[in-house]
Every structure is written in structure tokens, then in C-alpha cells.
Design a protein around this nucleic acid. Sequence first.
DNA 1: CATGAATGAGCTTTCATTCAT
DNA 2: AATGAATGAAAGCTCATTCAT
Lengths: 208, 208, 208, 208
Amino acid sequence: MSPRRRDTEGTAAARAERRAELLAAAAEVFASQGYAATTIRQVADAAGILGGSLYYHFDSKESMADEILSTFLNEMWASYERVLASGLDARETMEAIVVESFRSIERHRPAVVLYQNESKHLAAGERFRYLLDSHRRFEAMWTALLDRGVEEGAFRADLDRGLVYRFIRDTVWVAANWYQPAGRLSADDIAKQYLAMVLEGIQATRAT
Amino acid sequence: MSPRRRDTEGTAAARAERRAELLAAAAEVFASQGYAATTIRQVADAAGILGGSLYYHFDSKESMADEILSTFLNEMWASYERVLASGLDARETMEAIVVESFRSIERHRPAVVLYQNESKHLAAGERFRYLLDSHRRFEAMWTALLDRGVEEGAFRADLDRGLVYRFIRDTVWVAANWYQPAGRLSADDIAKQYLAMVLEGIQATRAT
Amino acid sequence: MSPRRRDTEGTAAARAERRAELLAAAAEVFASQGYAATTIRQVADAAGILGGSLYYHFDSKESMADEILSTFLNEMWASYERVLASGLDARETMEAIVVESFRSIERHRPAVVLYQNESKHLAAGERFRYLLDSHRRFEAMWTALLDRGVEEGAFRADLDRGLVYRFIRDTVWVAANWYQPAGRLSADDIAKQYLAMVLEGIQATRAT
Amino acid sequence: MSPRRRDTEGTAAARAERRAELLAAAAEVFASQGYAATTIRQVADAAGILGGSLYYHFDSKESMADEILSTFLNEMWASYERVLASGLDARETMEAIVVESFRSIERHRPAVVLYQNESKHLAAGERFRYLLDSHRRFEAMWTALLDRGVEEGAFRADLDRGLVYRFIRDTVWVAANWYQPAGRLSADDIAKQYLAMVLEGIQATRAT
DNA sequence: CATGAATGAGCTTTCATTCAT
DNA sequence: AATGAATGAAAGCTCATTCAT
């Protein structure tokens, strides 16, 4: 490995790091103001540079959103794949997936908010087709998981599967809107309580 | 009733009706494109008139959102008040409130989507302070209801109350994003399934 | 004179009267807000009707200004002609013209303000060419009068004639901006004081 | 002075100079077309840039007018203060103030025209309150000066003081409407003739 | 005569984007 | 890398004007 090569790597790494910083700032602003309502200047202000300077790093506002979302989704799917590959039964798989989801929110809260609030609108553009793909894949995963759970006798059979799917999907991700990393509950705490609610319900169990 | 009176009423009613039509069109577009991303021309196109003509009826884009949201919230709270005044126990009250919520979604789907997706951003403006008020009132109502349910022995006591509140709040309203009036399930069907999930959980009951 | 004829006259007179009322309202608003900054709705509000209704009486906003200005100028020139035809010497003529000018202001204050403030801008349009004509005629009249006064030994010969002309022209008309018909001084009072200043100056005469 | 400091100053100075250029162009157009009748595009055209570009330098059309007027008024009052502080008698003070006024017109003709024609309308807005303040201050200065002149035996006592004030105020400033820097007469020439007229009057002195 | 809904051109302003420095 | 001035398209909004009633 030549010194030249090393320099280039160093530079490339530095550049990647700067991009990550800027994207973090952008994600925060996009999440709190909404993507369309956020101006490039607001992003730049949050990053401590001027508007024009962002274009040295990124092609466009859209490409920032793109990179924020795809980074998050890639990581999320990687964690899901790990769970799905570990041979757990349906009930255990569901628990693990939910735990991973709340951990995703913990690590990528602004990206998740962006995903939750804007993916429907962004998905219209060609470059965001992967959002639809991810959506379909998500639905397929959960649908299969719920079916398997019913087969395995873990989940009730008398509920509308589509409804249960939407119910779980929405409640998990919508939590990103109020989750505060510094708050009282950790992501794992929330996951545990959430699973308790979803699996056992909130009504008091009849005294047996 | 004099003819004069009749005329005046007719004109006022006609005007109110036209406003309602235009607001329905606006709500639809705001809901599907997002408020900030929607142009006044898109609203006007949806209403079949020209952009400038909307300003004969409304002061601004913002005042359209205002009227859409306040109309919806007023009606929603009226229905909640009816439930709360009818002397039901906590469990019954919860069921009735959930049913009313899904009926609200059925009648005002675009307004609910707007509320769900944009109220956080809009609430920054002075004129939308009532959104925060409504939010607080909503939280107070549910918190009191959940506490009463625990006291009455209807709801489990081992769950985090704040978490349960958010869980219920989000899952009810987020449904507006996918609800289709013409779909397979009626609002009351969805409410019933939703209550089954939330109250009893989705896991299969232990072998009897 | 047939009854028919009488009716028509009555109608025409009524129409003319209505026009005059509306023009008076328009002139007032044009004068206080400025022509360009005045909306047709403001004029209509001042007249107690709706914006669209003005177009039954007038072709356009411009034609209102046109009629206001030409009515005023016609009357003003008629009064000037009367003075000029009465065989007075230069000094007497000047006094009479100034008196007539302040009386014009008294009768047509808003029109004079409009003339003073907007004629320069309006004169760009073809239909307002008469404003330029009036302006030239005004200049010719005063220039001739001042020259005659010098010849007759009534006016000083050591002043720049062009400057004196502008001085007189401006000070007379600019008074319309502050003149209040209900004020302390009548038009004739003002004319008298004004003439004293212009003719004799404001400095105390050296003790003789 | 460090190079760093120099750079900063250079940049700030360059920016101020650009603003001044753009304001000069704006003032010219405002003065010739009228403020309300001038479009931002006309200003931009006069400055050789595009309409949107003006907003890099200024917040709004209004803020351009604001800066034009306040710059002019500040300079004018500074020159007046210099005169008032120099211990002249009333007659000399008046002469000096008039001279300074015509010099103000010479240096800021478009600003003076704007002031003359639009300040009444603009003063309605909160941000232009200083126009009213300046107006009151102007009146107080002249009123006091005229009174002092009467006391000192320099000015006639038989004229209405309010009228004399308006007479002088208007005739001085209205000159901005026709003054041409490249014309036959310099500002000081005009001031001299103006003072001759106002002080001594235009009538021929009776041969003694 | 007057209304009131609608038109459509044009306005001020915003903002993503470019580019010479 | 970053600046900052400029671009230019498009936004929200205004308003003179029209016209069926």
C-alpha cells in the first residue's frame, strides 16, 4: 500500500465523515420541520456552513434525503436479516424484530421520522423506488411471520391478518415521533412493554 | 320567515356549501401530497377553478388548513363529549371512544391525515394554538380513562401508562393513512378488531 | 317637451349624479392612498357598493381618474379664462389667478391632490395627453403674465423667470395636500396671505 | 491592522457599496414611476440583475424604500444640526438651512422625491414611524426659527406663522421634482434666488 | 343597478441551484 | 472546502376586470 494510496484513503474517509456529519444535521432538520418545508439554508445553518457549500458535498436536496433514507434502510434490513437467519420460531422472531426496530429508532431517529412522514411523497420519484421495494418486503416479511405464528399456534387465528400487519407496522415506527434517546425508557424497555401490550393486550386477565 | 330572510339564508348557505366543497378538495390534496408540498394551483385544479379564485373564498393557504382542521376537531370533540357524558365504565368508554375515532376517520379521512402529519409543524403558528390545546386535552382524557380503568380492575396495572397512551393514540389515528372508505372493512369493523387486539392481545390464549 | 323626453332627462341626470357621487368617493380615496396603491375595492367600499358594480358606471380605474382630472381641469381653466378676459393689469391678474386657484383647491381638493401627485405618472398614457397640454398652457400663461408684469413695472426684473414660475406653480398647488375645508382659514384668506408672501416677501421692511 | 482585519473590512465595504449601488438604482425608479407603481423587476432591470437577486441584499421592497429614506434623512438632519449649532441669527440660519436643503436635493434628488411623494402613504407602516418623527421635528425647527426671526425683527409679524411654515417647507422640497443636477442652475444658485423671492418678494420695490 | 363568483395577468417573494473566487 | 452573489423557476397572493343572475 503506497503512501499515495494511504493519503487518498485518508481523504476519502475524511470526506465520508464530513458527509455523515452533514447528513446528520440535515436529517435532524428534515425530521423536525418536514422535508418540503425545510430550506437548504436551514440545513446549512444547522451544519454551520452556507447554503451553497452543501453543493460541494451533495448534488441536491433530494440526494441528501436519498442518502439518509437508504443508509437507514440498509442497516435496518441487515439487522432484520440477521434475525430471520437465526432459526427462531415465530413468536421469538417477532420479539427480536420488534427489538431491532426500536433499536433502529434509537440509532436513526431522524431518519425514521423522515421515512415515516415523507416516504409516501418521496416514493413518487424514480430514484426512490427502493422505498416501495422496502415497503413491499416489509409487508411480505410480516405477513409471512404472522401466518407462521398462527400455524405454530403462537398467534390468534381470529384476527384480520392485514389489519394486524398494519397495526404492528404503524405502532412501531410512529414511536419515532416521540422517542427521546435521553428519556426515561431505553429502546429495549420500550420494546418489552410494547410486546407485552401487543401480545397480551391491555385488559386485566380474568382471575382464574 | 320572510322572503328577505329566506334569500339571505339561501345566500349564506350557498356560500357555506361552496366553502365546504373547496375545503374538501383542498383537504384531499393536502392529505395526499403533504401540506407544504401542495401548491395552491393544485388545490384549485382539484376544485376546478383557477388559483386566484380560491382567494375570493379564503384568505390564505394557511386559513384553508385552519378551517379543515378546526372543523374536524370540533366535530370529533363533540362526539367524544357525548360518550364521556353517558356514564359508561372505563372499559365501555374506551370502546366507545375508539369507535367514535374510527368513525371520525371515516367521515374526515383527509382532515385526519392532515392532522396526523402536519399538526406538529403547523402548531408553531399562533393561529394553530388550538392544535396544542386539543393535543393536551386528548392526553388528559386518555390518561384519566386509563387510570380509571386500572382502578376499576378493567386494565392491567403493570404497564407504563404514558406508553400505553401513546400506543393507543398513535394506532388509532395512523389508520387514517391507509383507511379506504370503499374498502373491505367498515369503520366499525376496524374498531372491533382494533379493540380485540388492544384489549386481548394477538397471542393465542394458553391451551384451555 | 314630451314626458318621454322628461323621463330620459331625469334618468340621464340621475345617472350623472350617481357618477359624480362615485367619482367623489374615488377621488377621496385616490388622494389619500395614492392612485396606484388604491384598489378598486377600496373605492367601492367608500361608495358603499361592491367592486364589480363600479364597472356598470365606468370602464376602468383609469377612466375614473380621467374623469376626475378632466372635470377639475375644465372648471379650473374656465375660471382662469374668465380672469384673463377681464382686462386686468398683470398684478391684478396674478392676484385673481391665485384666488381662483385656491378656490379650485377648495372645491376639488382630492382632484387637485391627484393632479399634483399622479399627473406625472399618468401622463405617460395616451388618454391623458391633455394633462401635458394643460401643463404647457399653464406654463405659457404664467410666463406671459410674469413677463407682462415686469414690463408693466409691477414685478422685479432681477429674478430668473423660470424659477419664479415653478415657485409660484408649486406653492399654489402643493397647498392642496394640507388644505382642510373645515380649517381655520378660508381659501380666500389663504390666497391673501399667500399673495402677501409672494409679492412682498417675509422679511421685515426696513424701518423708514 | 492585520490582513485578516483588512479582508473583513474589504468584504463589508464591498457589500455596503453594492447595497448603495442597488439603492441608487431603486431610488431612481421609485422617484420616476412612483413607489407603488414600481415593480421589483423594474428596479432589478435598472440595476442590471434579476428580480430575485435583489432579495439577496434586501428583505423586501419596503426595506429598500426604508433604507433610501433613512439614509437621506440622517444626512439631512446632520447638516441641519451643524447649521443650528453654529450660533447664527434667525435670518442667517434660515439662509443656511435653505442652502443645505437645496444641497440635499442635489445629492439625494431621487430620495427627496420619494420622501416628498410617498412619505405620507408609507408613514402608515410601523417601520416608517421615523418619517413622522422627522416631520414633527422639521415643523418644530421651522416654527421656532420663524418665531425667533420675528422677535429679532428680521421677519414680518403680520403673517400667519403656520402658513409661512408650510409655504417654505413645500416650496423647498417640491423643487426636487424638477431639479436637474446637469441643469443651468446649481443648487446654490437656486437657493440664492429662492431666498431672494421668499425674503423680499417678487414685486418691484417702490422707487423711493 | 347591483351582486358575487370567477378570471388571469402580474406582483412580491422564496428557494434550490450554480459558479467564479 | 467554503463563500457569496447571482440565477430563474415557481410559489402564494393581489387585483382590475368580466359576466350571469
